[in-house]
């Protein structure tokens, strides 16, 4: 009985702390139920076309590096990220292959040859596909408001703990699409990618993801 009381107290305190940490958010009632509805709803998203804004916050330097571009996703695992301002940089993830165009320089990599790249690649795709809750590299907590869900992902895989303290993913409640991905680093810096002008389930031609 005393044990049960203690667990109850800890749960209430933990819940209150989480609510304080993410203003306006409360823990989802059932993580399992959320997981099923999130996965099912995400399945309905076959493609995304969107603008994105990336903000790199260097906390100790009080400095923000902002870049903008276009983003495309097509199920199962095709991603194109095209940075357009203040520099030109193109990255295409096509299955296990990555194509990078940086100015006039072109580079092709197989993610199989780089385990860390493979993991980071998987985070992006899992977030968008709705399968991030099944990614064993993270322990996940979920929170909600009337409009959004928030996934708090804490890395458990050793090679990721050195880079991220947490990854926060906000999801639009109305269509379960990703609103933002916030990668928090261990030193206090973070990179926030937010998606705007989203178009879901439009036809995106193969050429967008073609690796030449």
């Amino acid at each position: 009985m005393r044990k049960l009381f203690l667990i109850l107290i800890i749960s209430v305190v933990a819940g209150k702390m989480a609510m304080a940490q993410y203003k306006g958010f409360r823990p989802v009632a059932s993580l399992d139920a959320f997981k099923s509805s999130f996965t099912a709803a995400s399945q309905a998203i076959t493609s995304i076309k969107s603008d994105f804004i990336q903000e790199k916050n260097l906390s100790l330097l009080s400095e923000k590096i902002v870049s903008r571009g276009k983003f495309w996703f097509r199920r199962e695992n095709l991603v194109r990220m095209e940075y357009q301002q203040p520099f030109q940089y193109l990255m295409i993830l096509n299955g296990n292959n990555v194509y990078i165009k940086d100015g006039q320089q072109e580079n092709r990599i197989s993610v199989k040859s780089n385990k860390l790249f493979q993991k980071i690649n998987k985070i992006t795709i899992d977030c968008i596909k709705g399968t991030i809750l099944g990614n064993s590299d993270f322990s996940v907590n979920a929170f909600e408001t009337q409009q959004q869900f928030l996934l708090e992902m804490t890395p458990v895989a050793k090679d990721l703990t050195g880079f991220f303290s947490k990854i926060l993913v906000t999801i639009d409640r109305k269509d379960y699409s990703v609103l933002s991905i916030n990668m928090m680093e261990t030193g206090g810096d973070n990179t926030l990618i937010s998606f705007h002008q989203k178009e879901l389930n439009t036809t995106i031609p193969d050429a967008v993801f073609a690796i030449k």
Binding site: Q54, K56, S67, Y89
Partner: peptide, 11 residues
């Protein structure tokens, strides 16, 4: 301060 990071934000 000199900070070098990837285009994707990775420091």
């Amino acid at each position: 301060r000199v900070v070098f990071s990837a285009e994707t934000g990775f420091k």
